[in-house]
């Protein structure tokens, strides 16, 4: 799959017409294989744009640095859900963003080239191959894949005993180096002051050690419950390979089962934890 030409054409149109002053897309990385984000301000940089199955980054995070500025952005289906989330949470103005949506069969694992076909794990479980939100669509709308089980990874964990699950996560979190790449890459993480950096009260100490790491990773996951749009960026960027998507997808599954809600499917429905209906009983006996 290679949509580079289509993306360049649209970018040229949007830049030259003055509709936007920046197009956020992808270019080839220095390894000659992977992709990296590219900010195009000048028409003569348009030819650097590419789009293929190495284009793994969720670029929507960058919209938060361009608030109020007319911007075009290339999004995959999962990324498009992030824009809905950000519109819903008043972080992105819809009329400032020109969305170039791309039909996506999934992106390949890090280090692999476009033709390898070996998809990232979450892509193999993905049900959304057409963006939920776009101004221009590149590629033929896909008939949604019939994935019988959306959460095989999560149910696999659920089958384990509580002790096994704890041991698993303790080992994973013990490796965490608190680099916060998961947070920095996540479009849902935009608090001006993250709880982990609060000094008064100090929720989490500065120590890079198992106890603090566990608080950090679990609290972040809870902040994203019902807000994670399952782009797998946190897991991809983690330098010590902590399976963060597994954690976020567990909470996503819970929210889906409890509230019949998936984050970012539209921009209007508020996420369940920001609303309260009188009839919600929260399991408390009357």
């Amino acid at each position: 799959m290679d949509f580079s030409e289509e993306i360049r054409g649209k970018a040229k149109e949007l830049l030259e017409s003055g509709t936007v002053d920046c197009v956020i897309g992808y270019e080839r990385a220095t390894d000659g294989v992977g992709a990296r984000p590219l900010f195009v301000y000048q028409p003569n940089d348009i030819d650097r744009l590419i789009f293929d199955q190495t284009c793994t980054h969720n670029l929507t995070k960058y919209l938060l640095n361009r608030k109020g500025k007319a911007t075009a952005i290339v999004v995959k289906p999962c990324d498009s859900r992030a824009i809905n989330l950000l519109i819903n949470e008043s972080q992105v103005q819809r009329d400032k963003v020109s969305i170039i949506g791309v039909v996506c069969p999934g992106v390949v694992k890090a280090g692999l080239d476009n033709t390898s076909g070996e998809l990232q794990d979450t892509c193999r479980m993905c049900q959304q191959h057409t963006p939920v939100l776009y101004d221009f669509l590149v590629g033929e709308p896909a008939s949604e894949a019939d994935v019988p089980d959306t959460y095989p990874d999560v149910t696999g964990m659920e089958d384990k005993s509580a002790g096994e699950r704890r041991a698993f996560w303790e080992e994973q979190f013990s490796r965490c180096i608190r680099c916060y790449a998961c947070r920095q890459v996540c479009p849902g993480c935009y608090c001006p002051e993250c709880f982990v950096e609060r000094l008064d009260p100090m929720w989490v100490g500065i120590r890079i050690a198992p106890e603090e790491n566990e608080v950090w990773n679990t609290m972040r996951a809870f902040h994203l419950a019902g807000r994670c749009i399952d782009c797998n960026e946190c897991e991809r960027v983690c330098p010590v390979n902590i399976p963060l998507s597994l954690l976020n997808r567990k909470l996503g599954k819970e929210v889906e089962e409890l509230f019949n809600f998936q984050a970012g499917i539209d921009a209007e429905t508020a996420m369940p934890f920001s609303t309260f209906e009188k009839e919600e009983k929260l399991g408390i006996s009357e």
Binding site: R36, P37, F39, I177, C179, Y180, Q184, V185, V237
Partner: peptide, 8 residues
């Protein structure tokens, strides 16, 4: 523009 300012 591209840097996400993580500490990696």
């Amino acid at each position: 523009d591209r840097c996400i300012h993580c500490n990696i």
